[in-house]
């Protein structure tokens, strides 16, 4: 990979045990991919619980999912896909040395992630009001199934953990903005932007599966 020669000089980021920027970039990226593998299996456990209970109690899932609002779920899906798009645009800006574009795209991404969390907050608080609380605090009477609490345990675990990942993503994105403003990134070094982007896309992919599995059952 040939880089513009003017940028060849900027090698502050190169750690001593790597031979060149490319090796460091490739190593970081592979590290992130390996990390994503662990993320997939981490969520995988919850999907296994989901599938095991769904095959035991298909009618429970039919009944319980009516309590979830498909419209807001769809909006949230669109919001996350939009944020994935802006992250991809942010990486593109960094690759082209457009630091301003990078910062703007990161801001939009953070905003969209916050919209996602706000919608999630209203969904949760609505459920809490009618008594759909996690675990043994569950007190809702509206679902005629003795294991309704388990569906919502799985729901809260899945969306809750996903939400935690969104929050971590917001934190990372803010960190990127701070660094970008300090002019750390340029087309020869944008590794943190790239690997945070990978993380964020994975969070998006997990939601792409959560949405039909939880909201679109009937």
């Amino acid at each position: 990979m040939s880089q513009p020669s003017a940028l060849e000089e900027k090698l502050d980021h190169l750690q001593h045990h790597f031979i060149d920027s490319d090796q460091q970039f490739e190593a970081s990226k592979m590290g992130m991919w390996v990390f994503l593998v662990t993320e997939i299996l981490f969520f995988g456990g919850l999907f296994v619980a989901y599938i095991a209970y769904r095959t035991w109690y298909p009618e429970l899932y039919m009944l319980a999912s009516t309590e979830l609002n498909t419209f807001w779920g769809a909006v949230n899906t669109a919001v996350l896909i939009g944020s994935s798009l802006t992250v991809a645009m942010a990486i593109r800006s960094a690759q082209l040395n457009q630091i301003k574009g990078l910062i703007i795209n990161l801001y939009i991404t953070i905003a969209l992630a916050c919209v996602f969390m706000v919608i999630k907050f209203f969904e949760y608080s609505h459920k809490f009001e009618i008594g759909i609380l996690p675990g043994s605090y569950y007190s809702y009477e509206g679902i005629a199934h003795e294991k309704a609490n388990i569906f919502f345990s799985i729901y809260y675990m899945m969306t809750g953990l996903h939400g935690v990942h969104v929050l971590i993503g917001i934190g990372l994105m803010i960190w990127l903005v701070v660094k970008a403003k300090k002019n750390v990134f340029h087309s020869g070094y944008y590794t943190p932007v790239e690997i945070t982007g990978l993380y964020w896309h994975l969070v998006d992919i997990i939601w792409i599966f959560l949405f039909p599995l939880l909201y679109l059952i009937d």
């Binding site: 456990g45 043994s136 388990i150 345990s153």
Partner: peptide, 17 residues
């Protein structure tokens, strides 16, 4: 990690899985 998290939640909230 997810198993122990679920177990912790089992004790904390009684999620029942």
């Amino acid at each position: 990690a997810i198993t122990l998290l679920l177990l912790t939640m089992e004790r904390l909230l009684g999620i029942g899985i």
